[in-house]
């Protein structure tokens, strides 16, 4: 079964295990701005990737449904981060990078000659393991990408900054110090700031590389709650070492082991009734 067969929830919830088709209001469906677009936003078609002679990923077939959250789990060194960083082409410049197969965004190969790298990265945002605000004011951080892509200018930038800071729930904490350095914020706040920065350029897909592993439990909960609010407008792919987080925060889970996609499917199913022995060993904590 591929992820594509899973019923498309209007508002995905964590416990969407029943494969019965939900009732969809035909009027609402007609109003859906995404209805004419492919249901799979990102699609990895037999992606095989190596750096020099070292093969990192082997023949990965997986499709990411629009508006879902997919957790990417697996032991250290299994290729999780590499897979994630392939989708916004952050690996292209690594020495010895080679790939076979294809990854498509909205049906078009991310390596297609007409694909503009900069606008690809605008459409596919990324949040890193450690918060990495730029050495500029809090406000300038939020609009850094907006300025670079010339999406807005002048007074509009202030509007964008406020809107995005509100979206991540940081506005009240920082509204009086927008001109201050971001490094005076707590780690969790810095990560939220980076999230606001990533959201400000209006991405369709957000890649999250262990976004809460450097944060305290309360900040982690805050970020997890926010991620849920970002769907179904955005499609999220989140690498995590935290199995609890994968269970709580994702609709689907994919398990990578030694560069191979061992199993993927609805999160609940993968954790409760894994089909593969290796998956079971990993999700039950018998393999780290």
């Amino acid at each position: 079964m591929t992820l594509g067969e899973q019923p498309r929830p209007v508002r995905p919830t964590v416990v969407s295990t029943t494969p019965s088709k939900p009732e969809i209001d035909p009027i609402l469906e007609a109003l859906d701005p995404d209805r004419s677009r492919p249901a799979d936003v990102v699609n990895s078609q037999g992606l095989t990737l190596s750096f020099g002679n070292k093969r990192i990923l082997s023949d990965i077939h997986i499709a990411f449904r629009r508006g879902t959250i997919t957790a990417l789990i697996g032991p250290t060194g299994c290729g999780k981060s590499t897979f994630l960083r392939t989708i916004n082409r952050m690996n292209d410049k690594v020495s010895g990078f080679r790939h076979e197969g294809d990854v498509t965004l909205e049906g078009e190969s991310i390596w297609a000659p007409r694909q503009d790298l900069l606008s690809l990265r605008r459409r596919v945002g990324m949040l890193f393991q450690r918060p990495n605000p730029f050495p500029m004011s809090i406000r300038d951080n939020v609009v850094a990408g907006v300025k670079a892509h010339q999406i807005a200018k002048g007074k509009q930038l202030d509007v964008v900054a406020e809107e995005r800071l509100r979206q991540v729930g940081l506005w009240d904490a920082v509204k009086d110090r927008l001109k201050d350095s971001p490094f005076r914020l707590s780690g969790g706040q810095q990560q939220l700031l980076c999230l606001a920065r990533a959201l400000a350029v209006g991405p369709e897909v957000l890649l999250l590389d262990e976004p809460t592993s450097a944060l305290d439990p309360i900040s982690t909960e805050l970020v997890e709650g926010l991620l849920r609010q970002l769907t179904p407008a955005l499609t999220l792919i989140i690498v995590t070492h935290n199995l609890g987080q994968a269970r709580r925060a994702s609709d689907n889970t994919m398990f990578l082991y030694e560069g191979q996609l061992v199993e993927h499917g609805p999160t609940e199913e993968l954790f409760e009734r894994p089909k593969e022995a290796r998956t079971e060993r990993y999700v039950t904590g018998r393999m780290g």
Binding site: N88, M90, L117, L118, S119, L120, R121, R122, G125, M126, F128, R130, N132, P133, F134, P135, M136, A144, G145, A148, H149, C194, R197, A198, V201
Partner: peptide, 25 residues
């Protein structure tokens, strides 16, 4: 820090722009 460069790269900043606004600064 690499984190600054990667952050700029992942936002899709044009390389010259990222160099001026983030790296050189």
């Amino acid at each position: 820090p690499t984190a600054y460069r990667e952050g700029a790269e992942a936002l899709g900043m044009p390389p010259g722009y990222a160099l001026r606004k983030v790296t050189l600064k």
